[in-house]
Amino acid sequence: MRKRYLPYLFIMPAVIFMLLIVAYPILLTFRSSLFHEVLIRPWEGVEFVGMDNFVTLIKNQEFWSSLQRTAIWTVSSVLGKTLIGLSIAILLNQKFKFRGIYRTLILIPWVTPQVVSAIIWRWVYNGEYGMLNYVLMRLGLINTGISWLGHKTTAFIAAVINDMWIGIPFMIVVFLSGLQGIPNELYEAAKVDGANRIQTLFKITLPQLKPVFLTATILSIIWTFNSFNIIWVLTKGGPVNATETLVIKTYKEAFGKFDIGMGSTYAVTTFILLMIFSLFYWRMFSEKDEI
């Protein structure tokens, strides 16, 4: 009898809180996306326009190029984070001296506030005084300094690297914890069967890591897709629009132009895209075995 309402009692505070602070604003955003409302043009009024904003959005070439850019941004950054994170986690999963020190040092980027990290990287990338150019020149990799944030391609890569930098520690920690959850007996059995290390990696480690892998990558994809601070501080979406992802675009609509209608439309579209993608991703990878 008690047990039936007890769990609800427990989740109640969190639910009420989330409803008020997250769900309600999300609903408001959905609603705003159906209205024309530009705060700095009060004379135009607030008007219900149905799906007009979405039609405008779909017809807008800038939206499509921004979407494409966001996709490249997300894929390259998440791929980098995952590959590096996984490799380092596998290395750190061995037992050896100083492992604790490595593990601690690796966390430093994670504890660096994103804004602060972007400020540091901006200084590292500086074309005239930056350390990156200096080191690359000393290593003989380049002859003259590169203006990293001053060209479209390099600025994009620079932003991706900054984003990867922030995200790698989380990946390492999650993968490491996943690796530690793999029962030792499986490895013993493989050894008995005479499997080499590569075989062990692909036959045991990776399949066993799948649930962790799935959760970590999907979270990472969502976070990277929505990553704002780093790009904003580094480039403000420039040069031209080379780093203008959907979130930056949304911000410019909502807070540059104070166009609440279009800003919300961008937000809702981003949400729907991520939702569809997540469901699809989850399906594709967890089809065969239940998680």
Binding site: N126, G127, S147, L149, G150, H151, G238, P239
Partner: peptide, 10 residues
Amino acid sequence: EHKVTPNPVE
């Protein structure tokens, strides 16, 4: 053309 300035975009 004249290359007399550092990259202005930065």
